[in-house]
Amino acid sequence: MALLFEYLPLILFFVVYKAVDIFWATGVLIIAAIVQLVYYKVSTGKIETRHWIFAGIAVVLGGMTLAFHDEQFIQWKVSIIYALLGLSILFGKLLFKTNLVEKALMGLFSSVQKEQEVEINIPNAIFNQLLVLWVFLFLSIAVLNLYVAFNYSLDTWVNFKVFGLMGITFIAIVFTMFKVYKFLPEEQ
């Protein structure tokens, strides 16, 4: 259910775009992003940085899309978010010597470690390979989004944004799990 709520603004954007147009869809995206922030604040007492960033970009670029009646602003949103993600991972490693991919994965695996009382030891080389993969992937998606947005129809871009990016991300997640699977404890 939490995953569905995470993607709710995207789902609503797609449905309203198909039913009405890009401008209504953008308005719904802005409202859904704000409602999502309120929900996280009420339900957990805090709002994670990524939710602030996603909502902020949706409000600013969505607002510009509506104010100027120009869909190009909302089309930039995907590229800005993915470029920020890729650069955050890259600069986290270069400037702060922190592998954010490792932190994210180990955060996911922490419940497994506690439940099975085992330690998960994944070599740094694997985490570094995954870091390069995710930086390359995020920066490539940022560029690919702009290419699709400015070389194809609005319908093609919306479909790419919803289905293409989800498909690319799913493949990358499967590859990531494949790389770390042999280091995970076997089920009892």
Rank of each mutant, 00 (worst) to 15 (best):
N99T: 01
A55V: 03
T44Q: 13
I80K: 06
A58P: 03
I81M: 11
S88M: 05
G56W: 08
V59P: 07
I89M: 14
I53P: 03
L95I: 13
A55K: 10
L61H: 00
H69Y: 13
R50P: 07
K41A: 14
H69R: 09
D70W: 05
F73I: 12
L37S: 10
E102R: 15
T98E: 12
V38S: 08
I89D: 07
K41V: 08
F54S: 13
I81A: 01
Q36M: 15
E48H: 02
T49D: 00
I53G: 01
Y39T: 01
S43H: 14
A83L: 15
L84Y: 11
N99Y: 03
F73L: 11
V38I: 15
R50D: 00
V101C: 06
G63I: 07
Q75W: 04
I74K: 08
N99M: 04
Q72H: 13
I89Y: 11
V78D: 10
W52L: 12
G56C: 11
V60K: 03
I74Y: 02
L84W: 13
Y39W: 15
G56H: 07
Y39R: 15
Q72A: 14
L90S: 09
L85G: 01
L87F: 12
L100A: 01
I80Q: 09
T49C: 05
G63F: 02
D70L: 04
Q75E: 14
G86V: 00
I53Q: 03
L37E: 09
Q36Y: 15
E71C: 02
L85P: 03
W52G: 06
K46R: 13
K93V: 00
Q36D: 14
T65S: 12
Y40Q: 11
D70N: 15
Q36P: 04
Y82C: 13
H69I: 06
K93A: 10
M64V: 05
Q72C: 05
M64N: 03
S79K: 00
V38M: 12
I74E: 01
K41E: 04
S88E: 01
L90W: 12
Y39V: 09
A58H: 01
H69F: 10
Y39P: 05
K41T: 10
S88I: 01
K46W: 03
F73R: 07
V42T: 10
M64A: 14
T49A: 04
F91D: 04
S43P: 04
W52H: 13
F91M: 09
K93Q: 08
I57K: 03
F91S: 00
Y82D: 04
S43N: 12
I74A: 03
K41I: 02
F68H: 15
K77D: 06
H69L: 09
M64R: 06
L95K: 10
L87Y: 02
K77G: 06
G62Q: 04
T44D: 11
F91E: 02
M64C: 11
D70A: 09
K77H: 11
A55Y: 08
V38H: 10
L95P: 02
A83Y: 11
L85I: 14
Y82T: 13
A55P: 11
M64K: 06
W76N: 05
T98Q: 08
T98D: 00
H51L: 08
G56E: 07
F96T: 03
I47W: 00
G56I: 05
G86H: 02
T65W: 06
